[in-house]
């Protein structure tokens, strides 16, 4: 565990070092404020807005399937001991999920443009 903490510290130190080095050698430390890049045109509105993520049905399907990983990881550890029953149970479950995904696919969940 300490190894991970040490590594995180090294990474934070590296980032801090880069920022400090940048501060020392760049042309002016204070950041410049500019307009967003739009080929030189003035922006008509702020870009921070309610973005229309058209793939939201796919994200719902993802969430449903992703929760399954909660079972999959512990299952992977014990499957060798539990034997065939565990394999059958898990893959019946996964099969059911995949059938649901296929249904969602036919409904056009993975196409949005």
């Amino acid at each position: 565990m300490y190894g991970i903490v040490a590594m995180a510290l090294v990474a934070v130190f590296a980032v801090a070092f880069l920022y400090a080095l940048h501060r020392a050698v760049n042309v002016l430390a204070e950041p410049l404020t500019v307009l967003p890049a739009q080929s030189g045109w003035l922006p008509q509105e702020h870009a921070l807005s309610r973005f229309h993520a058209r793939w939201y049905p796919a994200s719902i399907v993802f969430l449903a399937f992703d929760v399954e990983m909660l079972f999959m990881y512990p299952w992977a550890v014990v499957v060798a001991e539990e034997g065939m029953t565990a394999v059958v149970e898990m893959f019946l479950f996964l099969g059911a999920l995949l059938i649901a995904v296929t249904w969602a696919w036919r409904e056009g969940v993975f196409r949005w443009v």
Binding site: L18, L21, H22, V25, N26, V27, L28, A29, P31, L32, T33, V34, L35, P36
Partner: peptide, 8 residues
């Protein structure tokens, strides 16, 4: 590193 920071 030489470039100036910039914020929108």
């Amino acid at each position: 590193l030489r470039q100036r920071q910039r914020t929108t």
